[in-house]
């Protein structure tokens, strides 16, 4: 019996090795991996990338796979290895494992690495970085918030000029968001004050709600959520108080209808689609840093909603500012870490 089990194990091992081998060598159909440091299901950032993956799958008939590491630092390296073994093109969101990513890119120079949302450059310059100019859309979110807090005819809006933001944690991207949000609001009225709370968590919805309630208690009428899944608590806080929130990354305006006045869109999916298109068309350049701003549609502001609360005048004003940024007549200041 023991012998039999042993033989079975050997057979299985050999079979699995044989089974793996072809996948390494002959990429007949192109395989693409979407490797993320978090997990799908945030209804925003990561999910938007997944939509881009689905789109290239249906358009180009390639095989796709998504590897979620769920913020588990121990999984970053095995996940990279798995991605390299499986795919030819790897779209990766690499917060927290930039160094490992550089090492892998140097080790496998034939693979195409596209890093999303931050700039990562390896020695051999093979990683392409997609850098979103989040300042442009966050600036517009600030414009929306500024106009909303001044529009005292809206139900619940007080005469005070205070707006809020709730961030998941202090990191360069969130700081850039807050920086541009503040600038956008102050462009409407320099007296507007911005109060920011950081949760130290990206999934504690209860804490997100508490932070937003505190901001509302302080007199804020609009709160911008920049906290992934925890931010849904912010949107619900706005619903409870009958005040206003701004969503992030995808259109979250209908999650709490009538209280989410706009969403700051970061279209990771669109970036994935467009970069993949350049790979297919042969215009892809390894090591480039691609800037996705308002003009290229990588970021945007979305005010469409089932229940529209923003008066047309405000929407027009926001869209006018948006057009100025696209035309280049208005330059949005980029966050440089103070």
């Amino acid at each position: 019996m023991k012998k039999f089990v042993f033989v079975m194990i050997v057979v299985l091992l050999v079979a699995s090795l044989v089974g793996c081998a072809p996948a390494n060598q002959s990429p007949e159909t192109e395989k693409v991996v979407y490797l993320i440091n978090g997990a799908l299901g945030d209804q925003s950032f990561y999910d938007s990338g997944q939509m881009g993956m689905e789109k290239i799958k249906s358009e180009y008939g390639i095989e796709i796979r998504t590897i979620e590491t769920n913020f588990d630092a121990g999984q970053y390296e095995p996940a990279l290895q798995a991605a390299v073994n499986y795919a030819d093109v790897i779209f990766v969101i690499s917060y927290g494992f930039e160094d490992q990513l550089m090492a892998f890119a140097d080790k496998y120079p034939d693979k195409i690495f596209v890093n999303l949302d931050t700039v990562v450059q390896n020695e051999k310059k093979t990683i392409t970085s997609v850098d979103f100019i989040e300042e442009e859309s966050a600036y517009l979110a600030g414009v929306v918030a500024g106009l909303t807090t001044l529009e005292t005819s809206l139900p619940g809006v007080n005469p005070g000029k205070l707006i809020g933001a709730v961030g998941g944690d202090v990191d360069p991207v969130i700081s850039a968001f807050v920086f541009a949000y503040t600038n956008g609001a102050k462009s409407i009225d320099p007296e507007i004050q911005v109060e920011t709370k950081y949760l130290g968590s990206w999934d504690d919805t209860a804490k997100g709600k508490q932070a937003a309630l505190q901001l509302f208690d302080m007199g804020a009428d609009v709160v911008f959520q920049i906290a992934a899944a925890a931010g849904i608590g912010v949107l619900q806080a706005a619903g409870e108080r009958g005040l206003y929130a701004i969503g992030v990354d995808t259109n979250q305006n209908d999650i709490v209808p009538g209280n989410v006045v706009a969403s700051d869109i970061k279209d990771v999916g669109k970036a994935i689609y467009e970069v993949f298109k350049t790979i297919k068309e042969g215009t892809y350049q390894p090591g480039a840093v691609l800037q996705y701003g308002l003009a290229s549609g990588g970021v945007d502001i979305d005010m469409t909603a089932q229940v529209q609360v923003l008066p047309q005048a405000i929407q027009d004003q926001v869209l006018a500012v948006r057009q100025q940024i696209i035309d280049g007549t208005l330059k949005v200041e980029i966050y440089t870490g103070e």
Binding site: D203, D204, T205, A206, K207, K209, I232, G233, Q236
Partner: peptide, 16 residues
């Protein structure tokens, strides 16, 4: 209370 009182949703690991 967490999922129906404080907020009205369920999120992964919401007991945090």
């Amino acid at each position: 209370f967490l999922s129906l009182g404080y907020v009205t949703l369920f999120s992964e690991n919401m007991s945090a």
